[in-house]
Design a protein around this nucleic acid. Structure first.
Lengths: 342, 342
DNA sequence: CTGAAAGCGCTTACAG
DNA sequence: CTGAAAGCGCTTACAG
């Protein structure tokens, strides 16, 4: 077909200079209303679109945001954590609403993800999303920020972090779940999930759990905590570890819903009924949580709000404005899995 | 900080011309091994990345693919169909593996999605994904293809379609589900989902259902078919419609798992047990399908393979090679929801 | 195998 | 309010 239509073609049709076309299209106030109208007419007629590469090259910004979804390498490759999937949906909508495109990329946690995006001018800023070893990426984060890369992270809000993050109030979430389990009469509550500063979100949930126990006059037992990442398999194995230890427990607080779902299976396979023999609770409120049997008690994180704040903070950074890390409220959702017979 | 590092900086450090740097980086065979090594060293040292905007502008391609996920406007806004989410995951991985970035965009079905992407040179080609009224977008598809836009679609493979698509064998999927239900002793099988050429995937599933019925000497009854889109709400309402019609049924074949899940709830709310009173089957095998109670009989579509073929076909189109529409096998997964007591 | 040079389509000072 | 012109950082004929 005929060559691509450029701003020069528009200029020709509208009887103005190319500079004026560019100004009009960028919404500059310096353009006469009548002129603007003529240009718009030509644009519509020729179905013209600004070439993003050219404008990006010249103006040094791209109008796109990059979402790096990094996954724990131990996770099952074929399924993405549903929780991140809903974050992804909400981030996509939030950026679209603000006129930005979203580039998405799945990263193995181990790879050199930091250099990839903003550096090559594909995006104006990046959003980091995923579970993983925080301590392992901390230095990269610092370097990124020092280099002037605009980035925001979904995850724990820590006192001395180098970057801007948005996360949920994991501490109070963990506290509420545990308090609820105690209220159901549980006294020996296991915690399934890593509990170290490598995984600060899980750690905060764990600390909330410890706080609740202590408040009720209970002491946390090391044998009741089993490390694990956010996968069903990990949850399944954690329960088997617990069982192999021969320790008694009347409730399981899983650090994520995926862990809880795996735990539920393992409990069932070992003849333990939920909630009759063991009360169970998770964290995240993924869509599946309300569909499993019994429906899972868990903690809802507001992904819609999170996506919007993440994008807003990133845009603020891009525009050179200050942005603050934000901790979103966590809301306990009680379902059947934790309701003990009285 | 110091200005951005460009290919000229690399040329300077490596002691060659900028053209040679560009050639080396693009993998041209015209570059001496030793020269290439020097250039690579300089690239590593300065942490240089090719500017995508500049290369895209010059070379007229972007190295990115766009994924347009369009949703039925009637669908619940906050949740994306889990099936498309897994397609999204597999498409993302497939494009990454082939060195392309993925731009994603959620479109309201009604909007002017066709013009948005390839036109503005943001992507080399687009992938269309989503349920929706096929007849309504057909003209747009034709126009797109006529304009020379490279695009592939996930969906029904139709005899006279203007574009290249990849879909599953919905006809045989529908046939197998229905045959299975008949094998369980069901004789009055309801079909929940639109059955018209507006929704060719559902329609093919319906036609498979009809074929299976006829083969068994049963005649499809209009009263046993209820229109609906792929949402839980729609499934819930479809069952209520069925009940309101006062028609007898001993099985429900839902055109998608989401519909089946809604139907399951409605059946339960009306005191009907699955599978004892009514056998139930869905389509898609979303992750939830195996977690609900009872686990759902459904049809598995291989999303991993689908994503790869979609991307491969699109790249073929981009490179000016011919690409063929592909129909993927559908596999019946029998779970408890359809197993009638004998 | 390598270099000098044109040009991709914009944006944005600069000069009216 | 508008135009002429420079230049963003590459790729790719063209000429050795």
């Amino acid at each position: 077909m005929k060559g691509k239509v450029t701003s020069f073609d528009i200029a020709h049709v509208a009887g103005v200079s190319q500079s004026t076309v560019s100004r009009a299209l960028r919404g500059s106030p310096l353009v006469n209303e009548e002129t603007r109208r003529r240009i718009q007419a030509a644009v519509d007629e020729l179905n013209y679109k600004v070439d993003k590469n050219a404008s990006g090259l010249r103006a040094k910004h791209t109008g796109t945001l990059a979402l790096l979804l990094f996954e724990d390498p131990t996770a099952d490759e074929s399924h993405i954590n549903p929780f991140f999937l809903s974050m992804l949906g909400s981030i996509t909508r939030a950026s679209a609403k603000r006129g930005y495109d979203l580039l998405i990329s799945f990263q193995q946690f181990s790879l050199d993800w930091h250099a990839d995006y903003a550096d090559s001018k594909k995006a104006d800023g990046i959003i980091l999303l995923g579970y993983g070893d925080y301590l392992a990426i901390r230095d990269k984060l610092s370097k990124l920020v020092a280099q002037g890369t605009r980035c925001v992270r979904w995850g724990a809000v820590l006192p001395d972090q180098p970057d801007v993050s948005v996360g949920c109030d994991n501490l109070s979430g963990g506290y509420e779940v545990t308090t609820h389990l105690i209220g159901q009469g549980c006294r020996r509550i296991a915690f399934l999930g890593d509990a170290s500063s490598h995984f600060p979100e899980f750690f905060d949930r764990y600390r909330g759990y410890v706080n609740a126990l202590r408040e009720a006059g209970l002491e946390p037992e090391p044998l009741l905590q089993v490390n694990g990442v956010s996968t069903e398999r990990s949850g399944y194995e954690a329960v088997e570890t617990l069982l192999a230890r021969g320790v008694n427990f009347d409730a399981v607080f899983a650090a994520s819903d995926l862990i809880a779902i795996g735990a539920l299976r393992a409990l069932g396979d070992h003849g333990l009924r939920v909630p009759d023999d063991v009360a169970l609770a998770g964290f995240d409120d993924i869509p599946m949580a309300s569909f499993i049997n019994p429906p899972l008690t868990t903690v809802l994180q507001d992904t819609k709000l999170a996506g919007e704040i993440l994008v807003d903070n990133l845009l603020r950074l891009i525009h050179g404005e200050p942005a603050e890390s934000t901790r979103l409220p966590a809301r306990l959702i009680v379902r059947r899995s934790s309701q003990r017979p009285r």
